[in-house]
Design a protein around this nucleic acid. Structure first.
Length: 281
DNA sequence: TTAACTGTTGATAC
DNA sequence: AGTATCAACAGTTA
């Protein structure tokens, strides 16, 4: 899925629509997708929507929350009365056909609005948790790479502590959150660092360069509404734009923007890794 | 036809 | 403890 920019794009849109709405009913089409009690969220009014790492959080009263992870193929699609009238909230054509074969959860909200959770591969989930339980979940995560309280210093410390390839360390959510495969490949290309370099061999200068590069590509991803390689869609069902601006990811054989050398694709820790053999030595 | 691939991350086994 | 591999699943591509 959806890495940090994709989830952030969804959070920003849902924040315009959901607060104030009442969850009138929730129907679960696939039991594996929903953990916890529907009764705890039914009739509750949405207070807000936020994000930590790649996890979306719907805040409800009484210290109750819905955490949502889209994993590889999850989608959250929002519709309301203005969607159908064709007013201020246009949606992709296929959205009117929902629920679809891949719709796993359907929530009916007040004011004729709906929230659909589609997830082809069934890795994603909704969990109903208390504030305390949410805090426990989040405690396992490293800070977001774009969190203002994260720093170049902290990233360097993360790298110093492991001999794993720097790409693996960068993508390890228990150390630092939000960087998935697409943005990791692009950040390393922008910083001109080889993905296989043992993390602890990076100099402070290189680590800082990677930190800035990662933030650059992630902010670019947010500005462009995320990357749609295959399944990711925004809440209205439309594709993002970052895939058209990728630096390395998916660009096998195309010239590196740094030096013109064709981008290679190899496997690193089981993940497709795109890099430039010349400037990312 | 079959095998390998896919944006995630937890569990498991060294 | 740290790290590498696999598995969850369905669909697409080679």
């Amino acid at each position: 899925m959806p890495e940090l920019p994709e989830v952030e794009t969804i959070v920003r849109k849902l924040s315009e629509h959901l607060p104030g709405k009442i969850i009138q009913s929730v129907s679960v089409q696939h039991p594996k997708s929903f953990l916890g009690s529907i009764e705890l969220i039914k009739g509750k009014q949405v207070l807000g929507v936020s994000r930590r790492a790649k996890i979306l959080r719907i805040h409800l009263p009484s210290e109750t929350n819905i955490l949502i992870h889209l994993k590889m193929t999850g989608q959250l699609i929002y519709t309301d009365a203005t969607t159908r009238i064709g007013g201020g909230h246009p949606t992709a054509d296929w959205v009117s056909e929902l629920p679809s074969k891949h719709t796993r959860i359907t929530a009916e909200l007040s004011e004729s609005s709906m929230l659909f959770f589609n997830d082809q591969r069934l890795f994603g989930w909704w969990k109903v948790l208390t504030d305390t339980q949410v805090a426990a979940e989040f405690a396992k995560l490293g800070l977001d790479i774009i969190d203002p309280s994260f720093s170049a210093e902290q990233l360097f410390t993360v790298f110093q502590r492991t001999a794993q390839p720097v790409k693996v360390a960068l993508m390890d959510g228990s150390r630092v959150s939000g960087v998935g495969n697409i943005y990791a490949c692009d950040a390393l290309n922008l910083a001109r660092i080889n993905p296989w370099r043992p993390a602890k061999t990076l100099s402070r200068v290189e680590s800082d360069r990677l930190y800035e590069a990662a933030k650059t590509v992630i902010y670019r991803g947010i500005e462009l509404g995320g990357a749609t390689i295959d399944d990711y869609r925004d809440v209205a069902g439309f594709a993002g734009q970052y895939q058209e601006k990728v630096l390395a990811y998916g660009r096998e054989g195309s010239p590196c923007y740094n030096c013109g050398t064709p981008i290679l694709k190899k496997k690193l820790a089981g993940r497709g890794t795109y890099f430039c053999p010349e400037c990312q030595k």
